[in-house]
Simulated scan of single mutants.
Amino acid sequence: MKTALFIHYPKCGTCRKAAKWLKENNIEVKDRDITKQNPTVQELKEWIKTSGLPIAKFFNTSGNIYKENNLKEKVKTASEKELLEILASNGMVVKRPILVANNLVLIGFNEEQWTEKLK
């Protein structure tokens, strides 16, 4: 496997668990801090398509921005273009970690899923 892209928030406990798991399993990654480099609209489009998941799965539903801006309702009614722009506007709106590798995009850390997909 070529080097995977690991997009994370360093202060996030789940992201730290995922990083530890990657290291323990000798999976080489290129780190990217989501607060310093937001995913672009184009990247998000590609990742959503590759993942096969609905765009709603890419939102960090437990984050303050999601709650303060009532994004739960907006996700139900907004166009894909609007939702992509919201996601690309602030990395803290995006669910993390994200692992992008070999025609595979994993959102959030689920050890069982990551083991199945990456080993």
Rank of each mutant, 00 (worst) to 15 (best):
K119Q: 13
P97Q: 06
P10I: 02
K67T: 12
G91T: 02
E80Y: 07
A56K: 15
L5V: 08
G63P: 06
K30S: 11
E28S: 13
R96G: 01
F59W: 08
K2Y: 03
E46Q: 14
R32S: 08
Q42S: 14
G63Q: 02
Q37D: 10
L83F: 02
W21I: 02
I34R: 07
K17R: 15
L22S: 03
I65F: 08
E116N: 15
L118I: 07
E112M: 05
T14M: 11
I55E: 05
K72N: 13
I86A: 04
L87H: 06
K36T: 09
A78P: 00
K57V: 01
Q37S: 10
K30E: 15
N60E: 02
T77C: 02
T115W: 06
R32L: 13
K57T: 02
L104E: 03
K57H: 11
G63F: 08
V94R: 05
A78H: 10
A4H: 09
A19L: 15
E85W: 08
R16H: 11
K72I: 07
P54V: 02
M1V: 09
Q42I: 04
K20M: 03
L71A: 00
K49P: 00
Y66R: 09
I98H: 04
L44V: 03
S79T: 14
D33Y: 12
T14F: 11
N38A: 10
K11Y: 10
V100Q: 05
A78C: 03
N64W: 08
A19C: 06
K81E: 15
K45M: 03
N64K: 14
N25M: 12
I98D: 02
K81M: 00
T35H: 06
S51H: 07
F58I: 01
